[in-house]
Computed example of a mutant assay.
Amino acid sequence: MSADLAHIRQVMAEADCLYTEAEVEAAIEQIAVAINGELAERNPVVFCVMNGGLIFTGKLLPKLDFPLEVSYLHATRYRNETSGGELFWKAKPEVSFIDRDVLIIDDILDEGHTLGAIIDFCRHAGARAVHTAVLIDKDHDRKARPDLKADYVGLPCIDRYIFGYGMDYKGYWRNAAGIFAVKGL
């Protein structure tokens, strides 16, 4: 079933711009500087978390000025109680990261269920160290693990339904040039 494009367009027309494209690009630049300073000698494997991390990863990678391997992963969590929060891999990592540093790049740290599970997976599978970079860290008290913090954070965000730079509204507006909040959400 296709989305109601008139509704999708209206969401963008009425959305509140939380961060402009220039502000997001400046945050990505700051993350790159920090990663270049800390991971340049670590020979990391960089994983883009699909689909949300795609744009952030694409903007960040050319700013990293050291050798690295890139791959992607696509994982979701079953939300029913019988699964225990287990990850469902739509695409598992294809690059070995045993005894390697891993950098996971994702769009947002919201409640942290999926990111936390991916970190645990990488550690259990033999990564020497796991680092995380998120474009947005949403500010609320619903974190799955209050101790879960991203190593590199672009921008803080209020607790609203946001889209742009990889984050979507009903599958749309990942391509929005800025970070926007849906009116009323």
Rank of each mutant, 00 (worst) to 15 (best):
L54F: 13
T82Q: 11
G37E: 01
K63F: 04
I162N: 10
L87G: 01
E38N: 12
I104F: 01
A176M: 11
A34V: 01
Y169I: 11
E81M: 07
G164F: 09
L73V: 07
A129W: 01
H124E: 13
I118P: 07
E81H: 07
F97A: 10
C157K: 05
R145D: 13
G84I: 10
I136M: 14
Y78F: 15
H140V: 10
L61C: 14
D101N: 13
H113T: 03
Y152H: 09
R42I: 08
S71P: 02
L155W: 03
L68R: 08
E69M: 08
I162P: 12
A133D: 05
R100A: 12
R128A: 15
R42C: 14
G116P: 06
V45T: 14
G154A: 11
D139G: 02
N36Y: 08
F88A: 07
L109I: 11
Y72T: 08
K149T: 12
V46R: 00
I119G: 01
T76L: 13
L68N: 07
I98W: 00
K170P: 04
G112A: 09
E81D: 14
N43P: 08
L68G: 08
A144Q: 15
T82C: 06
L73T: 04
L54M: 09
D99Y: 02
K59A: 13
P156Y: 05
P156I: 11
K149Q: 12
G171L: 11
F47W: 03
F180C: 06
G116D: 04
F97V: 00
L54H: 01
S96M: 12
D141S: 12
F180T: 07
A176D: 07
T57G: 03
S96D: 15
A125R: 11
E86H: 10
I35H: 00
L61K: 10
F47V: 06
K63E: 07
N175V: 09
S83A: 14
T82K: 08
K92H: 05
A176L: 11
C122D: 02
P62G: 09
V45W: 01
F88Q: 04
A75I: 07
R79T: 12
K90S: 08
E41A: 13
E69Y: 02
H131K: 11
N43F: 13
D168F: 04
G53P: 09
V95N: 00
N43A: 15
W173H: 15
A176N: 09
F47P: 07
M50H: 04
I119Y: 01
K59Y: 05
Y78W: 10
D141R: 06
D106W: 02
C157Q: 09
G85S: 06
G52F: 00
I35E: 00
V49Q: 00
N43E: 15
R100S: 12
V130S: 02
